[in-house]
């Protein structure tokens, strides 16, 4: 049996989080949902996922800080996909510079996210 890929989903918006959680689990991922930056950090310190999907704007820990933390503190190169919203384009560029792999804009199409996640994981 193939082991499920572990995906850390960092999203503080309940609606979007529920929807994405559902879809990603259906798609065969083991999803760990974090609703704020503290939880994200706790999860990361406990266990490294195979891929991270994170909103750019989050309480306690922005998506940019998350990328910075993973790349420079944890020294990990796991794929990170950033969820951005209108008005945050500048920050997305920074996130990319810090080492994010891909981004998807709100409103997020779950199907599109699934494709992007699969693509990033195939690259590894």
């Amino acid at each position: 049996m193939i082991e499920k890929k572990k995906l850390l989903l960092a999203e503080d918006d309940d609606l979007l989080a529920s929807l994405l959680h559902f879809r990603l689990e259906k798609g065969g991922y083991e999803v760990q949902l974090s609703k704020d930056g503290r939880e994200v950090k706790e999860h990361l310190d406990q266990q490294m996922p195979d891929i991270i999907v994170s909103d750019i704007m989050m309480p306690y820990f922005s998506g940019m800080e998350l990328v910075d933390y993973v790349r420079n503190e944890l020294k990990s190169s796991i794929p990170i996909i950033i969820i951005s919203s209108a008005g945050n384009e500048e920050n997305v560029l920074i996130a990319f510079e810090m080492g994010a792999n891909d981004f998807i804009s709100k409103p997020v199409s779950p199907s599109e996210l699934m494709v992007r996640v699969a693509r990033e994981l195939n690259k590894v």
Binding site: D12, D36, G37, M58, Y60, S62, M64, E65, D68, I94
Partner: peptide, 13 residues
Amino acid sequence: FAKYGGSGLGLSI
């Protein structure tokens, strides 16, 4: 920072 969430960059960045 708890008040509005960390939309800021953080000094490290």
